[in-house]
Design a binder for these strands. Structure first.
Length: 295
DNA sequence: AGCCAGGCCCTCC
DNA sequence: GGAGGGCCTGGC
């Protein structure tokens, strides 16, 4: 099925920037319209960008049922030109936008997003993806068709049942305790993640940081990538380095890591999260370029 | 071998 | 209150 869409959408950078962990490009070699395989809304999904829009297939549900959900997931409703206009006042961000037009935030499932970013602590992106896939294979349900199938991301109940010990056996390390605790609290109804979409930023932030293993950075990822808080601004090592290198004021004012989020939100405004994503992607791309040149 | 990876928590001052 | 150390695990 085709979702007609001719406005800017860079599917490749959007799915591989590091905001989501379950999309696999196929083929991996450079091609004009590569497919991306993933699991979303309890379906195995493959999709690709074409000139006309987003072409996709899914199973077991019908394409008609999934189409509106995918449009939502890909944030196709975001008015990128308005967003760009809002954050282009910053020269550095403006240059990043010119470099990666159509890079979009995603609107992911809050539970999967929360667990993924709990796993991100002191971890690398490849292994985070491995952790997410391992949890799905072990505790999720198979979806797809016989020769091509993956597993749904486990529900809070499924991960609560799994327990800390089995999560540790999967290789989550010290994060296993945090994932198990979060699963118990969400499964028990103590924290209602979906309701946080309607809550104001600060309130949702406070609810998230009440979870073990979730502090300001992880919470802001969840807020930005799954809870519709486009003003969220996660400060990780990459953003920290980017801000210090690219914004002399940060160094002049001797701002500690903790002060960077409020500083950036003040500077970039209601779409600070989009600015964050562009700065992050630029910074990591620069680094990859350097490493490639180094050998 | 030793360090680092999209942090977080705990201790101690 | 904030600076510093430790943490599972895997890859280089």
């Amino acid at each position: 099925m085709l979702i007609p869409f001719t406005r800017p959408l860079d599917l490749e950078n959007t799915l591989e920037v590091g905001q989501a962990f379950r999309w696999r490009r196929e083929p991996s070699e450079p091609t004009e319209h590569p497919w991306f395989w993933g699991v979303a809304f309890d379906n195995l999904v493959k999709l690709r960008r074409t000139e006309e829009g987003v072409e996709f297939f899914c199973a077991p549900d019908s394409e008609a049922a999934l189409s509106p959900l995918l449009q939502d997931y890909l944030r196709l409703g975001d008015d990128l030109s308005a967003i760009y206009e809002s954050i282009r006042g910053d020269e550095r961000v403006s240059a990043c936008i010119d470099r990666y037009p159509g890079l979009r935030l995603l609107r992911q499932d809050p539970w999967e997003c929360l667990v993924s970013f709990i796993c991100s602590a002191n971890n690398n992106i490849r292994r985070i993806g491995g952790n997410v896939e391992d949890m799905s294979r072990s505790f999720g349900r198979p979806v797809g068709i016989e020769d091509r199938h993956r597993h749904t991301f486990p529900t809070p109940e499924e991960l609560a049942d799994a327990g800390e010990h089995r999560l540790r056996e999967l290789g989550l390390g010290f994060r296993a305790k945090y994932v198990a605790a979060a699963a118990r609290r969400v499964a028990g109804g103590e924290v209602d993640l979906y309701s946080l979409r309607e809550a104001p930023y600060e309130e949702a932030l406070n609810a998230l940081v009440s979870l073990e293993g979730v502090a300001d950075k992880v919470a802001n990822c969840v807020l930005l990538f799954s809870l519709d808080k486009l003003e969220a601004f996660p400060v990780d090592v990459w953003i920290d380095r980017a801000l210090r290198d690219w914004y002399p004021q940060v160094t002049e004012k001797r701002l500690p890591r903790k002060a960077l989020r409020p500083w950036a939100q003040e500077r970039f405004g209601p779409y600070a999260g989009y600015a964050n994503q562009y700065l992050f992607h630029q910074r990591r791309s620069d680094q990859r370029g350097k490493r490639a040149a180094g050998r």
